[in-house]
Amino acid sequence: MRPDIVTFWHGPLDALRLLCLRSQVAAGHNVTVYSFDPLAQLPDGVGNAEAEAILPQAFAERLRPTGPDGVWRDWTTLQFSDFFRMRLMARNAGPNNPGLWLDADVLLLKPVELDPAKPYFAWERPRQLGNSVLYLPSSDPIVAAFMALMQQDELTPDWLALRHRLTFALHKLRGSHRPSDIRLAIYGPAALTALARRAGELHHALPKKSFYAVHAEPKLFFEPRDFSALLGDPEIMGFHVSPKGRGNQRPVPGSLHAWAAERFG
C-alpha cells in the first residue's frame, strides 16, 4: 500500500525542506505537514493540519523548558517531534489509514510501498535505526511503550542505555529531574533502536543506503561530484539530507542538490 506522508514542523520552512516536500508529492504521495501556526507558501499538493489535535503544544513544557517568552529552546523541537511522530503512529489503526512519517528534509526519489501490518524503518548507522523515515502499526509495542511513557510525570524511559542512565544520575545530583536536560536524542533513534530490539523487530530494518546514504556525509549532497551511482542504485528510495544550517543555500552547480532543485524545483 502507498501510505500518506505525515510530518511536523515548527517555524518557517526553508528552501531545502520545501524542495523535499515537492519531491514527496512528485512520488505520488498525499503529504500533510502538522504545525501550530499556519505555514505559508507550501508546495501544491501539501496539506497543513493543526498539530494541537495530535499533541498539545503544552506538552513541550514537560521536555526542555521554554523561556519566559514561550520560545522553544535547544532540544525542544527535536524531542517534541519524537513524541509527536509516535502519536501519529498511534493513529495507524487500520489498513486504509496508514501514515508514514518522513522528516521534512527527506528527498524522496520513488514512491514508498509498505505492509500496514509491519514496521517500516531503516538503519541510519551500523547499530542505530533512523526515525526520519518511520511507520508503525498502532498496535506495535514500540508505540505502546511511548504511550505509556507519556503518562509519566518525569518522562523517564525504561530503555535508557547505561551511559545515559549514569549521565541522568549526575544531572539529578545537580538538581535536574528532566531526562531531556541530558541534551541527547534519548527519545529519537536511540529509543527506536532499543525498543525495536526489545520487540524483536530489528529484522524489519531496511539497509542504511535506503534513506541515509548522504545523511552522515552532507558533502555528497551539497558539493559537486559524480552522484550517478546514488541515483542508479535501485535500493535507494531517497535521501535524508539533514542540511545543518544550509537549508537556504543556493544549489552549487554539479551537485546532487542542484540536480534535485532542477527536477523538483
Rank of each mutant, 00 (worst) to 15 (best):
R2N: 09
V6F: 14
V6Y: 13
W9Q: 12
G11Y: 04
G11F: 03
P12D: 10
P12C: 10
P12A: 08
D14P: 06
L18M: 13
L19R: 05
C20V: 04
Q24L: 09
V25S: 09
V25K: 12
A26P: 02
A26K: 11
T32A: 13
V33T: 04
Y34T: 06
S35T: 12
F36G: 11
P38A: 14
L39S: 13
L42Q: 05
D44Y: 10
V46C: 01
G47L: 09
A49G: 05
A53Y: 04
A53H: 09
A53N: 13
I54N: 11
I54Q: 10
L55T: 01
P56H: 13
E61L: 14
T66Y: 00
G67V: 00
D69S: 12
V71H: 06
T76W: 06
Q79T: 07
F80S: 01
F80W: 07
F84E: 00
M86Y: 03
M86S: 02
R87S: 07
R87E: 05
L88E: 01
M89I: 00
A90Y: 02
A93E: 12
G94M: 08
N96Q: 15
N97L: 11
P98W: 04
L100I: 12
W101H: 03
A104G: 13
V106E: 04
L107T: 10
L109V: 08
L109R: 09
E113Y: 08
P116K: 09
A117L: 11
P126V: 08
R127Q: 12
R127A: 14
L129T: 01
L129V: 02
N131F: 09
V133M: 06
Y135I: 01
P137G: 00
S138Y: 03
P141F: 05
P141C: 06
A144P: 06
F146E: 02
F146A: 05
M147R: 10
A148H: 13
M150C: 06
D158V: 14
W159A: 05
L160M: 15
A161G: 07
L162V: 03
F168Y: 14
L170A: 15
H171K: 14
R174T: 08
S176H: 15
S176F: 09
H177Y: 05
R178M: 09
D181E: 08
P189I: 02
P189M: 08
A190W: 01
L192F: 04
L192Y: 04
A196V: 03
A196Y: 02
R197A: 14
R198S: 09
L202R: 15
K209E: 13
F211C: 05
Y212W: 08
Y212L: 10
Y212H: 12
E217M: 11
E217V: 12
P218C: 10
F221S: 04
E223Y: 00
R225G: 12
F227V: 01
L230F: 14
P234E: 11
E235N: 14
H240Q: 03
S242M: 09
S242P: 00
S242T: 08
G245A: 13
G247L: 04
N248E: 14
P253A: 06
P253F: 05
G254P: 09
S255Q: 12
L256C: 06
A258I: 10
R263N: 05
G265N: 15
